[in-house]
Nucleic acid binder design. Structure first.
Length: 540
RNA sequence: GGCGCUUUCAUCUAACGGUUAGGAUACAAGAUUCUCAAUCUUGGCAUACGGGUUCGAUUCCCGUAGGCGCUACCA
């Protein structure tokens, strides 16, 4: 190497750390921008029924984001629609997260400094804020009845309550102040509407989609508050709560994207733009087949649950299946869900909650809806059963055995699990694959008999039993060696002998290695079963 | 209808503007064993279409088509 080139190389080596320092600096800087505020996110379902699996994913992403940034995760109940309230839904949602292992830091049932966390308990706060908006001239009172609005819609195609129509309606902009006051005082029903200024460009800065721009003229004067129950609608409650609860990031489903500009306008109207949360609108979960987003009905129609837990509808009495009851492991459900719309950018797919927390990145979320293909969830479940220690799987299997009336020492269950767990996708399938380890066959599978139980089988198995009985060592490997030698000596076909033997022990041509089975059963039980089969099957 | 979002194998997805377009599930074949599985190996399968920008486009821009969402005194 010449002096000159060595010199150049050393420059590169000197430059390299400097360059990487710059890269690090900039990376940290962008991190710091994101972290200027304490990260606080929320999951805010409305208690109108069971928690939808798409809601679980939204909650999961919020959870991962909060944990990754050492922030807070808030559980808020949005129960401003008194008509759709379903008793038991709130407890169901909480129980679902307990099962899944998703934890919250504050909120309904968790406590915290920003409560109350149930919107129905925050009426005074909303009234006060509506008052503010009214005073600021950012909202107005409207008296149009639902019937009147209906009539307008029927009369005018594409009717929208907005700048182009509001002056033809009955509201505080068109009525004299005295009349408005007297109407309100006399208990006439009204709503408070947002006053949307037309023809402004509203920008929603979305962490997944970038800048989404819309013209305010396409927005309507949304109802923010209704006098019927003196409660706000979602839009108002949401903005007020997120602001008061110091929420830093709003991570929610894409169905909210169209109303996000209105939310930006609300933050602006209140003068809260400087602390407005960052938005991230997640792609939706779509039906496995056909068109549309995954709905509550799809589950039981297509053979998989759409709810984490089984749900008993208190009104209709209908029962919808749940992942817990269908024998899915919560880890598998979360892993599957996490990868529907996000991936860490590497080939690995089996990820623990901790690993997901480390790798999660909103900017790596996909933008298009993801079809909910539960086939892959079955595979995840299989993988998680395989990865679990035998003793843990045995613990889950024990209740199934008890239900079948099988009572054996725990070590026996662990051993049985070790023999058959690689062939199941679900815990309950362990029984179909291991019942013969706990109970002698009551009957023999016809197909297996036809294929493997020949005329000379009884004689051969009797011979084999006599040989086995003489063996002092019964341990699997050794016995296998001896029996193979014996078969070879007799010049029998290995498959013929072994499969006939298998049928006597198992009752069918299935199961793990035969000497693993004999090992499990023990000498006495093995011989008992084989001889019993010979006596039962030789006549038939 | 209006507005917005979106588009890579059947499905979930990867790919600084330069790759034989990668992985996984599912499917198929083979290997293996005493059976059934599991496992391993192999295979087929994709950049919606049309324009531009560029030496070069899956990647950037525009249009078309498809998909999805919203369009309530629901959330």
């Amino acid at each position: 190497m010449s002096t000159k080139s060595r010199h150049n190389t050393s420059i590169i080596f000197v430059m390299l750390p400097i360059l990487s320092t710059f890269v690090l600096y900039f990376e940290n800087m962008s991190d710091n921008i994101a972290l200027e505020r304490r990260v606080r996110v929320r999951f805010a379902p409305s208690p109108t029924g069971p928690l939808h699996i798409g809601g679980v994913r939204t909650a999961l992403y919020n959870y991962l984001f909060a944990r990754q940034h050492g922030g807070d995760f808030i559980f808020r109940i949005e129960d401003t629609d008194t008509n759709r309230f379903v008793p038991g839904a709130e407890e169901y949602i909480l129980e679902s997260f307990r099962w899944l292992g998703i934890t919250f830091d504050e909120g309904v049932s968790f406590g915290g400094e920003h409560g109350p966390y149930r919107q129905s308990e925050r009426r005074a706060i909303y009234r006060q804020n509506v008052e503010t908006l009214l005073k600021l001239g950012k909202a107005y009172i409207a008296f149009d009845t639902p019937d009147e609005l209906e009539a307008k819609r029927a009369l005018i195609p594409n009717f929208q309550y907005d700048a182009s129509t509001r002056m033809q309606m009955r509201n505080s902009l068109t009525l004299p102040a005295a009349e408005v006051e007297s109407l309100v005082d006399n208990g006439v029903q009204y709503v408070v509407r947002m006053l949307v200024e037309p023809d402004r460009e509203v920008v929603v800065d979305d962490m997944i989609r970038g800048e989404v721009k819309v013209n305010s003229s396409i927005l309507d004067d949304k109802v923010l508050f209704k006098s019927v129950d003196m409660l706000p609608t979602y839009h108002l409650a949401n903005i007020v709560d997120d602001h008061l609860m110091e929420v830093s990031h709003v991570i929610r489903g894409e169905e909210w994207l169209p109303s996000a500009p209105l939310h930006v306008l609300l933050y602006e109207a209140f003068g809260w733009l400087d602390t407005m949360p960052r938005f991230a609108h997640l792609p939706l979960l779509l039906k496995p087949e056909g068109s549309g987003k995954l709905s509550k009905r799809d589950g039981d129609r297509l053979g998989f649950p759409v709810f984490p837990l089984e749900w008993h509808d208190p009104v209709t009495g209908d029962v919808s299946s749940g992942y817990r009851e269908k024998d899915y492991l919560p880890e598998a459900v979360l892993n599957f869900l996490a990868l529907l719309g996000w991936n860490p950018g590497e080939d690995r797919e089996i990820l623990s909650l901790d690993e997901m927390t480390r790798l999660f990145n909103l900017e790596k979320c996909s933008k298009a809806g993801a079809r909910f293909n539960y086939q892959k969830l079955v595979w995840f479940n299989h993988e998680y059963i395989l990865a679990k220690p035998d003793s843990e799987v045995a613990e889950l299997f024990r209740p199934v055995l008890e239900e079948k009336g099988v009572c054996v020492p725990f070590e026996r269950i662990v051993k049985a699990v070790s023999l058959v767990k690689n062939r199941v996708n679900f815990i309950h399938e362990l029984w179909d694959n291991s019942h013969y380890l706990f109970q002698a066959p009551q009957e023999y599978d016809d197909k297996s008999l036809k294929k493997w139980w020949k005329e000379d089988s009884p004689a051969i198995i009797s011979e084999l039993c006599d040989f086995i009985e003489k063996q002092e060592v019964f341990e699997g490997d050794i016995l296998e060696q001896r029996v193979m030698e014996w078969i070879a000596g007799k010049e029998y076909a290995v498959g013929k002998v072994m499969n006939a033997f298998r049928v006597t022990l198992v009752g069918a041509a299935m199961g793990p290695q035969i000497f693993a089975i004999t090992d499990f059963l023990g000498k006495e039980e093995t011989l008992r079963r084989a001889r019993h089969a010979v006596s039962v099957l030789s006549n038939g």
